[in-house]
Design a protein around this nucleic acid. Structure first.
Lengths: 193, 193
DNA sequence: CTGAGCATGTAATCGGTTACATGATTCC
DNA sequence: GGAATCATGTAACCGATTACATGCTCAG
Protein backbone atom coordinates (compact mmCIF):
# COMPACT_ATOMS: atom_id res chain seq x y z
CA UNK A 1 0.00 0.00 0.00
CA UNK A 2 1.94 2.91 1.28
CA UNK A 3 5.27 1.23 0.73
CA UNK A 4 6.28 2.81 -2.52
CA UNK A 5 9.16 0.98 -4.21
CA UNK A 6 12.37 2.93 -4.42
CA UNK A 7 13.74 3.14 -7.91
CA UNK A 8 17.30 3.30 -9.08
CA UNK A 9 18.48 6.12 -11.31
CA UNK A 10 18.03 4.01 -14.42
CA UNK A 11 14.52 3.03 -13.44
CA UNK A 12 13.70 6.68 -12.85
CA UNK A 13 14.96 7.43 -16.31
CA UNK A 14 12.75 4.86 -17.97
CA UNK A 15 9.74 5.69 -15.85
CA UNK A 16 10.38 9.35 -16.56
CA UNK A 17 10.29 8.69 -20.28
CA UNK A 18 7.06 6.83 -19.79
CA UNK A 19 5.65 9.81 -17.90
CA UNK A 20 5.75 11.76 -21.16
CA UNK A 21 3.03 9.57 -22.62
CA UNK A 22 2.17 5.95 -23.32
CA UNK A 23 4.65 4.13 -25.47
CA UNK A 24 6.09 0.80 -26.48
CA UNK A 25 9.66 -0.21 -25.73
CA UNK A 26 10.62 0.70 -29.24
CA UNK A 27 8.92 4.09 -28.95
CA UNK A 28 10.77 4.77 -25.71
CA UNK A 29 14.13 4.19 -27.32
CA UNK A 30 13.34 6.78 -29.96
CA UNK A 31 11.75 9.14 -27.47
CA UNK A 32 14.94 9.03 -25.41
CA UNK A 33 16.86 10.42 -28.37
CA UNK A 34 14.65 13.48 -28.48
CA UNK A 35 14.40 14.12 -24.72
CA UNK A 36 16.50 12.85 -21.81
CA UNK A 37 18.85 11.49 -24.42
CA UNK A 38 20.94 14.59 -23.86
CA UNK A 39 22.06 13.31 -20.53
CA UNK A 40 21.32 9.61 -20.51
CA UNK A 41 19.91 6.89 -22.69
CA UNK A 42 18.79 3.39 -21.73
CA UNK A 43 20.16 0.21 -23.24
CA UNK A 44 17.61 -1.72 -25.24
CA UNK A 45 17.88 -5.03 -23.42
CA UNK A 46 17.62 -3.33 -20.07
CA UNK A 47 14.62 -1.36 -21.18
CA UNK A 48 12.78 -4.47 -22.32
CA UNK A 49 13.70 -6.17 -19.04
CA UNK A 50 12.44 -3.26 -16.95
CA UNK A 51 9.04 -2.71 -18.53
CA UNK A 52 7.44 -6.02 -17.45
CA UNK A 53 8.81 -5.48 -13.96
CA UNK A 54 7.04 -2.14 -13.76
CA UNK A 55 3.81 -3.93 -14.58
CA UNK A 56 4.41 -6.49 -11.82
CA UNK A 57 5.04 -3.68 -9.34
CA UNK A 58 1.86 -1.94 -10.39
CA UNK A 59 3.70 1.08 -11.72
CA UNK A 60 2.59 0.64 -15.30
CA UNK A 61 -0.13 -1.03 -17.34
CA UNK A 62 0.42 -2.99 -20.49
CA UNK A 63 -1.71 -3.36 -23.56
CA UNK A 64 -1.03 -5.45 -26.63
CA UNK A 65 -1.72 -3.54 -29.81
CA UNK A 66 -2.23 -5.55 -32.97
CA UNK A 67 -1.00 -4.07 -36.18
CA UNK A 68 -1.45 -5.54 -39.57
CA UNK A 69 1.24 -3.99 -41.63
CA UNK A 70 3.76 -3.80 -38.74
CA UNK A 71 4.69 -6.24 -35.97
CA UNK A 72 2.37 -6.18 -32.94
CA UNK A 73 3.54 -3.98 -30.13
CA UNK A 74 3.10 -3.74 -26.39
CA UNK A 75 2.14 -0.29 -25.21
CA UNK A 76 2.84 0.75 -21.62
CA UNK A 77 1.17 3.50 -19.64
CA UNK A 78 2.11 4.86 -16.20
CA UNK A 79 -0.35 4.24 -13.39
CA UNK A 80 -0.95 6.75 -10.61
CA UNK A 81 1.19 4.56 -8.36
CA UNK A 82 3.92 4.73 -10.98
CA UNK A 83 3.77 8.50 -11.13
CA UNK A 84 3.94 8.67 -7.37
CA UNK A 85 6.86 6.22 -7.18
CA UNK A 86 8.72 8.30 -9.74
CA UNK A 87 8.13 11.50 -7.80
CA UNK A 88 9.20 10.15 -4.41
CA UNK A 89 12.14 8.25 -5.85
CA UNK A 90 13.44 11.33 -7.59
CA UNK A 91 13.03 13.32 -4.39
CA UNK A 92 14.84 10.71 -2.29
CA UNK A 93 17.72 9.95 -4.64
CA UNK A 94 20.87 11.61 -3.36
CA UNK A 95 23.08 13.10 -6.05
CA UNK A 96 26.27 11.51 -4.73
CA UNK A 97 28.90 9.08 -5.83
CA UNK A 98 29.49 8.02 -9.40
CA UNK A 99 25.93 8.54 -10.60
CA UNK A 100 25.76 11.99 -8.99
CA UNK A 101 25.77 13.92 -12.23
CA UNK A 102 23.13 11.77 -13.91
CA UNK A 103 20.87 12.01 -10.88
CA UNK A 104 21.34 15.75 -10.67
CA UNK A 105 20.36 16.08 -14.30
CA UNK A 106 17.33 13.85 -13.85
CA UNK A 107 16.06 15.99 -11.03
CA UNK A 108 16.33 19.13 -13.11
CA UNK A 109 15.03 17.53 -16.28
CA UNK A 110 11.97 16.22 -14.48
CA UNK A 111 11.50 19.49 -12.62
CA UNK A 112 7.83 19.51 -13.53
CA UNK A 113 7.44 16.32 -11.51
CA UNK A 114 9.56 17.14 -8.46
CA UNK A 115 8.54 20.78 -8.31
CA UNK A 116 10.56 24.01 -8.68
CA UNK A 117 11.47 24.19 -5.02
CA UNK A 118 13.21 20.83 -5.14
CA UNK A 119 15.00 21.87 -8.32
CA UNK A 120 16.23 24.98 -6.59
CA UNK A 121 17.51 22.99 -3.62
CA UNK A 122 19.18 20.47 -5.91
CA UNK A 123 21.00 23.19 -7.81
CA UNK A 124 22.09 24.87 -4.59
CA UNK A 125 23.30 21.61 -3.10
CA UNK A 126 25.40 20.88 -6.14
CA UNK A 127 26.76 24.40 -6.15
CA UNK A 128 27.97 23.85 -2.59
CA UNK A 129 29.66 20.59 -3.63
CA UNK A 130 31.21 22.28 -6.64
CA UNK A 131 32.58 25.19 -4.65
CA UNK A 132 34.19 22.79 -2.20
CA UNK A 133 35.70 20.84 -5.04
CA UNK A 134 37.08 24.00 -6.62
CA UNK A 135 38.83 24.81 -3.36
CA UNK A 136 40.28 21.31 -3.23
CA UNK A 137 41.52 21.45 -6.81
CA UNK A 138 43.09 24.86 -6.27
CA UNK A 139 44.90 23.48 -3.23
CA UNK A 140 46.21 20.60 -5.30
CA UNK A 141 47.28 22.94 -8.08
CA UNK A 142 49.30 25.03 -5.66
CA UNK A 143 51.18 21.94 -4.52
CA UNK A 144 51.89 20.63 -8.01
CA UNK A 145 55.02 21.03 -10.11
CA UNK A 146 54.22 22.67 -13.48
CA UNK A 147 56.98 20.72 -15.24
CA UNK A 148 56.71 17.30 -13.66
CA UNK A 149 52.92 17.29 -13.41
CA UNK A 150 52.27 18.90 -16.78
CA UNK A 151 49.69 16.41 -18.05
CA UNK A 152 47.86 15.82 -14.78
CA UNK A 153 47.59 19.59 -14.47
CA UNK A 154 45.86 19.76 -17.84
CA UNK A 155 43.05 17.52 -16.59
CA UNK A 156 42.92 19.56 -13.41
CA UNK A 157 42.43 22.76 -15.37
CA UNK A 158 39.72 21.25 -17.50
CA UNK A 159 37.94 20.17 -14.35
CA UNK A 160 38.23 23.70 -12.96
CA UNK A 161 36.84 25.22 -16.14
CA UNK A 162 33.86 22.91 -16.11
CA UNK A 163 33.17 23.60 -12.46
CA UNK A 164 33.26 27.31 -13.19
CA UNK A 165 30.80 26.78 -16.04
CA UNK A 166 28.50 25.01 -13.60
CA UNK A 167 28.65 27.82 -11.04
CA UNK A 168 27.80 30.44 -13.66
CA UNK A 169 24.90 28.36 -14.94
CA UNK A 170 23.66 27.79 -11.40
CA UNK A 171 23.71 31.50 -10.60
CA UNK A 172 21.84 32.39 -13.77
CA UNK A 173 19.36 29.59 -13.31
CA UNK A 174 18.61 30.30 -9.67
CA UNK A 175 17.90 33.90 -10.64
CA UNK A 176 15.56 32.72 -13.37
CA UNK A 177 13.76 30.44 -10.95
CA UNK A 178 13.37 33.32 -8.50
CA UNK A 179 11.95 35.48 -11.24
CA UNK A 180 9.61 32.73 -12.29
CA UNK A 181 8.16 31.59 -8.97
CA UNK A 182 6.22 34.19 -6.97
CA UNK A 183 8.62 36.23 -4.87
CA UNK A 184 7.52 35.84 -1.25
CA UNK A 185 10.48 37.42 0.49
CA UNK A 186 12.11 34.14 1.45
CA UNK A 187 12.94 33.01 -2.05
CA UNK A 188 10.64 30.02 -2.26
CA UNK A 189 7.64 28.32 -0.77
CA UNK A 190 9.09 25.42 1.22
CA UNK A 191 11.49 27.63 3.14
CA UNK A 192 11.57 27.29 6.91
CA UNK A 193 13.90 28.24 9.83
CA UNK B 1 54.55 -13.08 -26.37
CA UNK B 2 53.54 -10.30 -28.67
CA UNK B 3 49.89 -10.62 -27.79
CA UNK B 4 49.60 -7.86 -25.28
CA UNK B 5 46.41 -8.09 -23.23
CA UNK B 6 43.94 -5.30 -23.76
CA UNK B 7 42.93 -3.57 -20.59
CA UNK B 8 39.65 -1.97 -19.67
CA UNK B 9 39.52 1.62 -18.52
CA UNK B 10 39.51 0.60 -14.87
CA UNK B 11 42.50 -1.65 -15.36
CA UNK B 12 44.32 1.18 -17.07
CA UNK B 13 43.55 3.35 -14.09
CA UNK B 14 45.00 0.90 -11.61
CA UNK B 15 47.99 0.06 -13.77
CA UNK B 16 48.51 3.78 -14.30
CA UNK B 17 48.63 4.34 -10.56
CA UNK B 18 51.13 1.54 -10.29
CA UNK B 19 53.24 3.19 -12.99
CA UNK B 20 53.91 6.03 -10.55
CA UNK B 21 55.94 3.69 -8.36
CA UNK B 22 55.75 0.39 -6.50
CA UNK B 23 52.99 0.20 -3.97
CA UNK B 24 50.67 -2.05 -1.99
CA UNK B 25 46.93 -2.11 -2.50
CA UNK B 26 46.51 0.11 0.48
CA UNK B 27 49.11 2.56 -0.82
CA UNK B 28 47.35 2.70 -4.17
CA UNK B 29 44.07 3.69 -2.59
CA UNK B 30 45.75 6.63 -0.92
CA UNK B 31 47.80 7.48 -3.97
CA UNK B 32 44.60 7.68 -6.01
CA UNK B 33 43.35 10.46 -3.76
CA UNK B 34 46.38 12.59 -4.56
CA UNK B 35 46.57 11.87 -8.27
CA UNK B 36 44.02 10.43 -10.72
CA UNK B 37 41.51 10.78 -7.89
CA UNK B 38 40.41 13.99 -9.56
CA UNK B 39 38.77 12.09 -12.32
CA UNK B 40 38.39 8.55 -11.10
CA UNK B 41 39.04 6.38 -8.09
CA UNK B 42 39.04 2.60 -7.81
CA UNK B 43 36.89 0.65 -5.40
CA UNK B 44 38.86 -1.22 -2.77
CA UNK B 45 37.51 -4.69 -3.44
CA UNK B 46 38.07 -4.31 -7.14
CA UNK B 47 41.58 -3.10 -6.63
CA UNK B 48 42.48 -6.10 -4.49
CA UNK B 49 40.89 -8.37 -7.06
CA UNK B 50 42.82 -6.81 -9.94
CA UNK B 51 46.32 -6.84 -8.49
CA UNK B 52 46.80 -10.64 -8.38
CA UNK B 53 45.41 -10.85 -11.90
CA UNK B 54 48.08 -8.45 -13.11
CA UNK B 55 50.68 -10.78 -11.62
CA UNK B 56 49.16 -13.77 -13.42
CA UNK B 57 49.24 -11.85 -16.68
CA UNK B 58 52.87 -10.92 -16.13
CA UNK B 59 52.09 -7.22 -15.94
CA UNK B 60 53.26 -6.81 -12.36
CA UNK B 61 55.47 -8.48 -9.80
CA UNK B 62 54.57 -9.08 -6.22
CA UNK B 63 56.71 -9.06 -3.12
CA UNK B 64 55.63 -9.75 0.43
CA UNK B 65 57.07 -7.24 2.85
CA UNK B 66 57.17 -8.21 6.51
CA UNK B 67 56.65 -5.49 9.02
CA UNK B 68 56.83 -5.87 12.74
CA UNK B 69 54.83 -3.02 14.07
CA UNK B 70 52.31 -3.02 11.18
CA UNK B 71 50.56 -5.81 9.31
CA UNK B 72 52.60 -7.39 6.53
CA UNK B 73 51.92 -5.95 3.13
CA UNK B 74 52.18 -7.06 -0.48
CA UNK B 75 54.04 -4.62 -2.68
CA UNK B 76 53.45 -4.61 -6.43
CA UNK B 77 55.74 -3.28 -9.14
CA UNK B 78 55.03 -2.87 -12.86
CA UNK B 79 57.00 -5.07 -15.21
CA UNK B 80 58.16 -3.89 -18.62
CA UNK B 81 55.32 -5.93 -20.13
CA UNK B 82 52.93 -4.11 -17.81
CA UNK B 83 54.21 -0.73 -18.88
CA UNK B 84 53.88 -1.74 -22.51
CA UNK B 85 50.36 -3.12 -22.00
CA UNK B 86 49.36 0.13 -20.32
CA UNK B 87 50.74 2.21 -23.17
CA UNK B 88 49.15 0.23 -25.97
CA UNK B 89 45.85 -0.14 -24.12
CA UNK B 90 45.63 3.59 -23.54
CA UNK B 91 46.44 4.20 -27.19
CA UNK B 92 43.84 1.73 -28.41
CA UNK B 93 40.98 2.64 -26.09
CA UNK B 94 38.40 4.65 -27.96
CA UNK B 95 36.87 7.52 -26.02
CA UNK B 96 33.30 6.63 -26.90
CA UNK B 97 30.14 5.56 -25.16
CA UNK B 98 29.49 5.96 -21.48
CA UNK B 99 33.08 5.75 -20.36
CA UNK B 100 34.17 8.26 -23.00
CA UNK B 101 34.90 11.06 -20.59
CA UNK B 102 36.88 8.90 -18.17
CA UNK B 103 38.94 7.46 -21.01
CA UNK B 104 39.58 10.90 -22.45
CA UNK B 105 40.82 12.08 -19.09
CA UNK B 106 43.01 9.02 -18.65
CA UNK B 107 44.71 9.66 -21.94
CA UNK B 108 45.49 13.23 -21.01
CA UNK B 109 46.42 12.43 -17.43
CA UNK B 110 48.87 9.77 -18.56
CA UNK B 111 50.18 11.97 -21.35
CA UNK B 112 53.73 11.18 -20.32
CA UNK B 113 53.04 7.54 -21.18
CA UNK B 114 51.10 7.93 -24.43
CA UNK B 115 53.15 10.85 -25.69
CA UNK B 116 52.20 14.48 -26.49
CA UNK B 117 51.18 13.71 -30.05
CA UNK B 118 48.54 11.24 -28.94
CA UNK B 119 47.31 13.74 -26.37
CA UNK B 120 46.97 16.34 -29.07
CA UNK B 121 45.01 13.97 -31.28
CA UNK B 122 42.79 12.95 -28.39
CA UNK B 123 41.96 16.54 -27.57
CA UNK B 124 41.25 17.33 -31.21
CA UNK B 125 39.06 14.26 -31.62
CA UNK B 126 37.00 15.21 -28.62
CA UNK B 127 36.74 18.78 -29.81
CA UNK B 128 35.26 17.51 -33.06
CA UNK B 129 32.73 15.41 -31.11
CA UNK B 130 31.90 18.36 -28.90
CA UNK B 131 31.35 20.76 -31.79
CA UNK B 132 28.99 18.28 -33.42
CA UNK B 133 27.12 17.88 -30.17
CA UNK B 134 26.81 21.64 -29.78
CA UNK B 135 25.22 21.85 -33.20
CA UNK B 136 22.80 19.08 -32.26
CA UNK B 137 21.83 20.74 -29.00
CA UNK B 138 21.31 24.08 -30.70
CA UNK B 139 19.03 22.40 -33.20
CA UNK B 140 17.04 20.85 -30.38
CA UNK B 141 16.85 24.16 -28.57
CA UNK B 142 15.43 25.86 -31.65
CA UNK B 143 12.66 23.27 -31.81
CA UNK B 144 11.76 23.44 -28.13
CA UNK B 145 8.99 25.40 -26.44
CA UNK B 146 10.42 27.75 -23.75
CA UNK B 147 7.30 27.36 -21.60
CA UNK B 148 6.47 23.72 -21.97
CA UNK B 149 10.07 22.49 -21.98
CA UNK B 150 11.31 24.84 -19.29
CA UNK B 151 13.12 22.27 -17.15
CA UNK B 152 14.53 20.14 -19.95
CA UNK B 153 15.88 23.34 -21.48
CA UNK B 154 17.76 24.07 -18.25
CA UNK B 155 19.70 20.83 -18.57
CA UNK B 156 20.28 21.59 -22.21
CA UNK B 157 21.79 24.95 -21.38
CA UNK B 158 24.03 23.48 -18.73
CA UNK B 159 25.25 20.97 -21.27
CA UNK B 160 25.95 23.77 -23.75
CA UNK B 161 27.89 25.76 -21.16
CA UNK B 162 30.03 22.79 -20.29
CA UNK B 163 30.71 22.03 -23.92
CA UNK B 164 31.76 25.63 -24.45
CA UNK B 165 34.09 25.33 -21.46
CA UNK B 166 35.63 22.29 -23.08
CA UNK B 167 36.21 24.02 -26.41
CA UNK B 168 37.91 26.96 -24.75
CA UNK B 169 40.12 24.65 -22.71
CA UNK B 170 40.96 22.63 -25.81
CA UNK B 171 41.97 25.73 -27.77
CA UNK B 172 44.16 27.00 -24.97
CA UNK B 173 45.68 23.59 -24.37
CA UNK B 174 46.43 22.83 -28.01
CA UNK B 175 48.22 26.16 -28.22
CA UNK B 176 50.25 25.29 -25.15
CA UNK B 177 51.16 21.92 -26.62
CA UNK B 178 52.25 23.63 -29.84
CA UNK B 179 54.40 26.03 -27.86
CA UNK B 180 55.87 23.19 -25.87
CA UNK B 181 56.77 20.69 -28.56
CA UNK B 182 59.35 21.85 -31.11
CA UNK B 183 57.65 23.72 -33.94
CA UNK B 184 58.47 21.88 -37.13
CA UNK B 185 56.04 23.58 -39.47
CA UNK B 186 53.44 20.83 -39.33
CA UNK B 187 52.48 21.28 -35.71
CA UNK B 188 53.82 18.04 -34.30
CA UNK B 189 56.29 15.25 -34.79
CA UNK B 190 54.16 12.27 -35.83
CA UNK B 191 52.43 14.18 -38.61
CA UNK B 192 52.33 12.58 -42.03
CA UNK B 193 50.36 13.01 -45.27
C1' DC C 1 16.95 -7.65 -54.28
C1' DT C 2 19.07 -5.30 -50.60
C1' DG C 3 18.99 -2.52 -46.72
C1' DA C 4 16.67 0.27 -43.41
C1' DG C 5 13.07 0.54 -40.18
C1' DC C 6 9.67 -1.68 -37.15
C1' DA C 7 9.29 -4.65 -33.13
C1' DT C 8 10.45 -7.79 -29.13
C1' DG C 9 12.93 -10.27 -26.47
C1' DT C 10 16.74 -13.93 -24.18
C1' DA C 11 21.33 -15.38 -22.61
C1' DA C 12 25.80 -14.83 -21.13
C1' DT C 13 29.05 -12.21 -19.21
C1' DC C 14 31.27 -8.80 -16.70
C1' DG C 15 32.23 -4.84 -14.06
C1' DG C 16 31.17 -2.38 -9.93
C1' DT C 17 29.19 -1.82 -5.29
C1' DT C 18 28.16 -3.19 -0.65
C1' DA C 19 28.62 -5.85 3.09
C1' DC C 20 31.17 -9.09 5.64
C1' DA C 21 35.40 -10.51 8.13
C1' DT C 22 39.68 -9.89 10.88
C1' DG C 23 43.15 -7.98 13.80
C1' DA C 24 47.16 -5.29 15.39
C1' DT C 25 48.84 -0.61 16.81
C1' DT C 26 48.91 4.07 18.01
C1' DC C 27 47.05 8.36 19.38
C1' DC C 28 43.79 11.00 22.21
C1' DG D 1 38.87 2.87 26.87
C1' DG D 2 37.71 4.11 22.12
C1' DA D 3 38.61 5.81 17.58
C1' DA D 4 41.55 6.04 13.70
C1' DT D 5 45.06 4.04 10.79
C1' DC D 6 47.30 0.19 8.77
C1' DA D 7 46.42 -3.88 5.96
C1' DT D 8 44.13 -7.59 3.09
C1' DG D 9 40.85 -9.93 1.33
C1' DT D 10 35.97 -12.76 0.22
C1' DA D 11 31.07 -13.22 -1.04
C1' DA D 12 26.91 -11.89 -2.86
C1' DC D 13 24.43 -9.21 -5.57
C1' DC D 14 22.99 -6.30 -9.14
C1' DG D 15 23.21 -3.36 -12.98
C1' DA D 16 24.92 -2.73 -17.56
C1' DT D 17 26.75 -4.29 -21.92
C1' DT D 18 27.12 -7.41 -25.82
C1' DA D 19 25.73 -10.90 -28.59
C1' DC D 20 22.24 -13.80 -30.15
C1' DA D 21 17.69 -14.63 -32.34
C1' DT D 22 13.65 -13.68 -35.37
C1' DG D 23 10.80 -11.88 -38.98
C1' DC D 24 7.85 -8.65 -41.58
C1' DT D 25 7.38 -4.43 -44.72
C1' DC D 26 8.54 -0.74 -47.59
C1' DA D 27 11.52 2.21 -50.34
C1' DG D 28 15.15 2.60 -53.61
Amino acid sequence: MSDVPRLTATECGVLGLLSLGEASGYDLMKLADRSVGLIWRPVKSQLYALLPRFVELGLAERQRVRQETRPDKVVYRLTDAGREALRTSLLELEAEGRAAYAIFNFKVFFGEIVGPEHVRETIEARRRQVVERQAELLRIRRGADPEEDFFPLLTLELALDELRAYVRWANRTLARLDAKSPADGTGGRARRR
